[in-house]
Write a protein that binds this DNA or RNA. Sequence first.
DNA 1: CAGGTTTTCGCCTACTGGTCGAAAACGTGG
DNA 2: CCACGTTTTCGACCAGTAGGCGAAAACCTG
Lengths: 212, 212
Amino acid sequence: MLWERAREPHAHRWSLPGGGLRVDEDVESSIRRQLAEKVDVRQLSHVEQLAVFSAPDRVPGPRVVATAFLGLVPSDVDPEVPADTSWHCVDKLPSMAFDHSSIVHRARHRLGSKLSYTNLGFALAPPEFTISLLRDHYSAALGYRVSATNLQRVLSRRLLLEPTGGTAPPGPSGGRPAALFRFSAKGIKVTDPFAVLRPPGSGRPAGGSGSP
Amino acid sequence: MLWERAREPHAHRWSLPGGGLRVDEDVESSIRRQLAEKVDVRQLSHVEQLAVFSAPDRVPGPRVVATAFLGLVPSDVDPEVPADTSWHCVDKLPSMAFDHSSIVHRARHRLGSKLSYTNLGFALAPPEFTISLLRDHYSAALGYRVSATNLQRVLSRRLLLEPTGGTAPPGPSGGRPAALFRFSAKGIKVTDPFAVLRPPGSGRPAGGSGSP
DNA sequence: CAGGTTTTCGCCTACTGGTCGAAAACGTGG
DNA sequence: CCACGTTTTCGACCAGTAGGCGAAAACCTG
């Protein structure tokens, strides 16, 4: 989501929403406040620090140190934005002000990476979703097609998918109605990475009961 | 590596090395300069931004925004440090100044997580190392025993271990001399995460050449 | 009700990680 | 100098995991 600058420098170019840090707030409170004030985006499903951008010449004039954030909004919410603000596809970005273009690319890379070793993908979807919708979000964020079959099995084995019992109506061209799921967070967060080298003794959840 | 504060506030308590940002440097240059100036630590095998700590009351007086870094030094280098500086085990930390204790815990958690989905473990070892040494580093950082057999096979299958041909002399109690390896970086960095949900068609690295 | 569409499920295969035990290579003590 | 303990290395086995079909289910349109 970008905001078209009205004033110099870089007037009429697109920039990321943000602003100065007040003395009585930390950086996360600040970005949440600014999003709420300026563009009315409050329903963030995930917010994390991306990186500090601090090159001395990143903006004209005195140096400005910026803490960039990665924020995700579920795909079903479409917040009202002011006239000078609009959503852009990360594959077709306009010319951007300052170093904001590199910030966006860094965020895109972070999201793609985290999809592989965390469950952050659920933050992209509404509270109830179909596997196809989740697959589309994964595909868009990763940049390649992922199989719905495989995605469902992988997430199911991790006990992350909980069927709601309901179904979503099929599209205009028909098709079997898709089952609805919700994220089954059994004490875990979407940001928790799953280990690859595990502690010993955690390989076999349940041995064959009794004697073979 | 901690530094004992001489002045108030928090005099005589331990704190992380660091200092103010100059106008002509970015934050990474700054922390590298300060480490080089104050404690003569130059041989960092890995440096990454950890997080921004910006709570308004994190230090007495005017608010100070700090960009914390995670820096790794290979286990074979032992840089000379001034009298007021010394290394501490993260399991036995002294009382620390400001919010530096939470910064260290955050760094520890980050390192443990990244060992699971990147090859950052190689940054802990010297350029040439034995599997046992690498296992000890993994065990220390993760907090549980990892098997040398498994570690070697996992890393070998990822084509990350390149034997140097040399061997390390056995310890005082004998034992077979251990083979030496180096990190085989074929165009990859230790920070690159390995994907879990892979792009299609990448399952089989090398098909059987010809007809078996 | 026939045909097209989308989702879901089961099966098969390949790969990956955990565990175990044997063998190799070394030092030490009798 | 040879038996013994120690440490590393390697192979084998097993279970769990992911990718790739293809069939079946469930829906819409004409």
